[in-house]
């Protein structure tokens, strides 16, 4: 998906300040950046700040952009930094690069084994379920959440995720597995109850 954006946009035009090309860039990427901000910060106003600051900083930095990563990955990287800055403002002790205690070494516990895959689609994506999905993702630590968002929601590759976050690919993989399994546990609790209700009801 990202090779296309590299070919699609003329870096030369963007660097020269071509406004039509810039408007095109903004329209292609704004939804993704807004969505990332919204899921990182869970607040529409913060998401809008992330969105605006990401493009303002990108425009400033365009002359220095060397094209080593795709424009898309580069924009995600700026957006992640903007999101983390807002998080740090609220939680000054937050340190993205350090390991979270137990995050990467502890054994992963699996406790939920209800097979809720067979629930009807209407139940899986009901508006109540949607609220639960949003709530569950907010329960993840920021470090795990951002990896899940980039990899599984925005569908960046492991390499692109590692470039966007400036962490190693092995850290991406470890955090991704943790994030996925934690969400699976939470969803299993929620949908498991629905499954029981359906059986007894």
């Amino acid at each position: 998906m990202n090779e296309e954006s590299q070919q699609e946009f003329s870096l030369e035009l963007l660097r020269s300040g071509d406004r039509a090309e810039l408007a095109r860039l903004v329209d292609v990427h704004s939804t993704k950046i807004y969505r990332l901000g919204l899921k990182m910060l869970s607040n529409p106003q913060d998401a809008e700040d992330v969105l605006q600051n990401t493009f303002l900083k990108a425009i400033q930095a365009l002359p220095k952009f060397e094209g080593r990563s795709t424009i898309s990955t580069w924009l995600y990287r700026i957006a992640v930094n903007e999101s983390l800055m807002l998080i740090r403002r609220r939680k000054p002790e937050f340190d993205f690069a350090s390991k979270v205690e137990g995050e990467e070494d502890d054994e992963i516990l699996l406790t939920q084994f209800s097979d809720w895959c067979c629930l009807p689609e209407s139940e899986l994506v009901s508006s109540e379920a949607q609220k639960y999905l949003d709530k569950a993702i907010q329960e993840l630590s920021e470090k795990l959440r951002v990896v899940f968002l980039l990899r599984d929601i925005e569908k960046l590759s492991i390499t692109e995720t590692s470039e966007a976050l400036n962490i190693s690919e092995s850290a991406v993989k470890t955090r991704l597995l943790r994030a996925r399994l934690q969400l699976r546990e939470m969803l299993s609790k929620y949908y498991g109850e629905r499954l029981n209700a359906e059986k007894t009801g």
Binding site: R35, D115, C117, L124, R180, R184
Partner: peptide, 22 residues
């Protein structure tokens, strides 16, 4: 069950997020 529900978890997050537009 872990494999199936994990796949479904990832699928659900991706599918429902696609609906979020600016």
């Amino acid at each position: 069950v872990v494999v199936d529900t994990l796949k479904k978890t990832i699928y659900l997050y991706h599918e429902t997020s696609e609906k979020t537009e600016i």
